[in-house]
């Protein structure tokens, strides 16, 4: 048998494992390749190309997109370059909106998840089901509906005025608050579900033990509950914060599209009158890099925390 092709040699357990599992992993690799690597690679390549005047790209290497993002050479491009704040402002606004939305989601989502997890086991499914029902409806339609609710002559303001609580309508629509509400409403279940999963596994005997040792409710929450359900909270925050960062439906419809958010800025580069594909790709790359850095920093800090 000597001299045969290598894979005829006696199989180690590792080889056998590879032979069986390797092909089974193909769908995973295909999935990652087609839906992750190829699109991101395309984006990276396009961000370094030269833009064509009326949309599209010229296959010439160029740093113009990144130059436009970071350097301001004046309206006519004839001034010495200084730091460009326009796009950083847009990024900062988006990050702030997403952070507020995440905080709102946590403030409402955590008690909700706690409530569901403390119901009798046979009714929890119904509560979770109720949480998901509104999300069977398309995001666009839910966002427009929210606008109907909060507009100046909408039911919310009419009810408040009818009850004599306010004299004139609360200006809600076309404000930052409306955008934050919209993001909160869009992504709430992404907070509730992972937090619920964590709280459900929490052993309530710990709380009883803490109470027996004279810990106040606040101390029990801070010292016992939160550290144990923290992974669920972190997962929920990431799931809300990251899509909120790139959202453009809520800012456009509820915020009145008065200011660019990261999402609408990118959208405009491809569909709108600005038509600058390399710049749209570059903004996407920068956003992705920022998110990646934030995740890495978090991962390292938790790794250290675990080791200590």
């Amino acid at each position: 048998m000597a001299g045969m092709v290598p894979d005829q040699t006696p199989a180690t357990s590792g080889d056998g494992y590879r032979r069986v599992v390797g092909p089974l992993l193909l769908p995973t690799w295909a999935m990652i390749g087609i839906f992750l690597v190829v699109p991101v690679a395309l984006m990276a390549v396009y961000s370094f190309l030269t833009k064509e005047f009326r949309g599209g790209v010229d296959w010439q290497f160029s740093l113009a997109a990144y130059d436009q993002f970071f350097l301001n050479r004046g309206l006519f491009g004839d001034e010495p370059p200084v730091m460009e704040w326009t796009y950083i402002t847009i990024f900062w606004r988006s990050i702030w909106q997403a952070a507020v939305a995440t905080a709102l989601c946590l403030a409402i989502g955590f008690p909700t998840a706690w409530f569901i997890a403390t119901r009798p086991a046979n009714t929890r499914g119904i509560w979770l089901f109720l949480i998901t029902i509104p999300y069977w409806v398309n995001l666009l339609i839910r966002t427009v509906s929210l606008k109907f609710l909060i507009r100046d002559n909408g039911p919310l303001n009419e009810a408040l005025m009818g009850a004599g609580l306010i004299d004139g309508p609360l200006p809600l629509v076309n404000t930052n608050l409306a955008v934050q509400l919209g993001l909160f409403y869009s992504y709430l279940p992404f907070m509730v579900l992972p937090v619920y999963a964590a709280v459900e596994r929490y052993n309530f005997a710990y709380s009883e033990a803490a109470a027996d040792l004279y810990a106040s409710r606040w101390v029990t929450l801070r010292e016992i509950v939160l550290p144990i359900v923290k992974p669920g909270i972190v997962a929920g925050c990431l799931l809300v914060f990251i899509p909120s960062l790139g959202a453009f439906l809520a800012p456009d419809l509820l915020g009145g599209a008065k200011t660019f958010m990261i999402g609408s800025l990118i959208d405009e580069q491809f569909k709108g009158s600005l038509g600058n594909w390399p710049f749209g790709a570059a903004v996407s790359m920068i956003l992705m890099t920022l998110v990646m850095i934030a995740l890495l920093v978090y991962a390292r800090s938790t790794a250290k925390g675990g080791a200590a």
Binding site: F53, L75, F76, G77, T86, Y87, T89, I90, A257, K258, T259, F260, S273, L274, N276
Partner: peptide, 17 residues
């Protein structure tokens, strides 16, 4: 033309930044 369009693009971005 492309040169003028660039200026109008910049005004628009500045308006909505």
């Amino acid at each position: 033309d492309e040169e003028a369009q660039k200026l109008y693009d910049a005004i628009w971005i500045n308006l909505k930044k």
